[in-house]
């Protein structure tokens, strides 16, 4: 049978035989002496490819991107997008005006009733964690499922092929910015500040702009910064695979239990034993504060786990 080369048959081929390039790369990496050697060989292969390619294989494509109408179209599309965005931005209502968004009954209801019904000064948090809590529950589970999938695919923990594991570690050591003085001095100032700022955003989520998702992302960034500067050994003193598992699973279970009870009773604000407190205090708004914390934990753990998985395949 003659081998066709259109996109569909290439896809079929890929489904049947897998990624050839990936397989050869893995074999190469297992057979090589050291990472530096491996990079050199890869470079050589790439250079060879470029040499053969410049003889004419990819020349037409290059010409296509360089043609005048391609460039004109690119510029015109970019300029019109910029113009559209600027036009929309000019038509936005001024920040802080009272009657900005009251053009539908739903918005009006939220603006008028969120404070007394949920106790949240920040209406956005009141909506996403109370009125639309189910949606947020699903979102945090999506994050968890994403990180589970990445763990399934990339984790080298319990990898049977010992050589592959060792190789991953060796690569890790080769590219790690180990004991970089400049990075460490910056991280010594920044990472505690980042972590505290993330916690502040989480715990102040029902009072000021912010909440679990943004604060959790900042926490995760702080963890990643610390890990980058000081390495795995020091991070493992307080954040290991076990911590990740416990924190994210407990946070999700707590969230599911709290919201499940809420929905089981018909989502109608039954008495749940937590007093709403004085609006504006930190300890107010009932369940919103712990729920924010749970979401923040899940997001921070997810970010850190994704980072370590893509970097090394292990915590």
């Amino acid at each position: 049978m003659k081998k066709k080369n259109d996109a569909f048959s290439r896809l079929l081929d890929w489904l049947e035989n897998g990624d050839q390039a990936l397989d050869t790369e893995m074999e190469d990496s297992l057979s090589d002496a050291s990472p530096a050697e491996h990079i050199k060989q890869k470079k050589k292969k790439k250079a060879d490819k470029r040499k053969t390619a410049s003889k004419g294989a990819s020349a037409p494509r290059r010409a296509y991107a360089d043609s005048w109408w391609y460039r004109t179209c690119a510029v015109v599309i970019c300029l019109s997008l910029i113009g559209l965005l600027l036009f929309t931005a000019l038509r936005l209502p001024e920040f802080g005006t009272a009657d900005t968004l009251i053009d539908s009954e739903l918005t009006e209801y939220y603006v008028e009733h969120t404070l007394e019904e949920t106790g949240a000064v920040n209406i956005v948090t009141g909506i996403i964690l109370d009125y639309r809590g189910f949606d947020t529950l699903g979102e945090s589970h999506v994050l968890f499922i994403a990180v589970c999938t990445v763990l399934l695919m990339l984790s080298v923990r319990g990898e049977k092929n010992e050589a592959l594991r060792l190789k991953a570690n060796e690569y890790e050591r080769h590219f790690e910015p180990e004991d970089d003085l400049i990075l460490q001095s910056a991280a010594r100032i920044l990472s505690p500040l980042t972590l505290v700022f993330g916690l502040y955003i989480i715990f102040n989520g029902h009072l000021s702009p912010g909440g679990g998702f943004s604060g959790g992302a900042i926490l995760g960034a702080g963890l990643i910064l610390y890990q980058n500067a000081f390495g795995y050994e020091k991070t493992e003193r307080f954040f290991t695979y076990k911590t990740f598992r416990w924190v994210s699973v407990c946070a999700l279970l707590f969230y599911s239990a709290a919201k499940g009870y809420h929905f089981f009773t018909g989502a109608n604000h039954l008495e749940n034993g937590i007093s709403p407190g004085v609006a504006g205090n930190i300890l107010s708004a009932g369940l919103l504060l712990p729920l924010n914390f749970a979401v923040g934990c899940v997001v921070a753990c997810t970010m850190y786990a994704l980072y370590t998985m893509f970097r090394k395949g292990e915590f």
């Binding site: 470079k43 910015p177 970089d180």
Partner: peptide, 20 residues
Amino acid sequence: ITSPVCSHLIGRLVRETDEE
């Protein structure tokens, strides 16, 4: 604080990997 550190790290990585 962060941007020069980033540049420094990128430069270092380039120095380590782009031997050719």
